[in-house]
């Protein structure tokens, strides 16, 4: 299972905070994004926007990063803390 979390405006767009994806073999973030896009069409375009940050197990990651069972992936809009 890969746990996918959406934050701030992305959560509002997805309508959920967390979604679990059962996985067999490890896959790239790009492949995972495709599955997420199928479930959440509203996110399809924005997930590929350069301003959206992605993390795997709380470290920043890129499209070719590999994710596997047990990982936590987060999609994050630009930060606005401080």
């Amino acid at each position: 299972m890969i746990t996918v979390r959406f934050f701030a405006t992305l959560r509002d767009m997805a309508g959920v905070e967390v979604k679990d994806y059962p996985v067999g073999e490890p896959l790239t973030l790009k492949e995972l994004k495709k599955r997420i896009g199928d479930d959440f069409p509203a996110l399809r375009e924005i997930m590929d926007s350069r301003s959206i940050l992605v993390s795997v197990n709380q470290e920043f990651a890129k499209d070719d990063s590999v994710v596997r069972d047990g990982d936590e992936v987060a999609f994050m809009p630009p930060f606005s803390g401080g």
Partner: peptide, 19 residues
């Protein structure tokens, strides 16, 4: 730092996405 600000105004709420 993954922290996000939402501004609540009389017209509604908006997530701020620039720093």
């Amino acid at each position: 730092t993954p922290i996000w600000k939402k501004e609540i105004t009389r017209e509604g709420e908006v997530w701020i996405s620039e720093t």
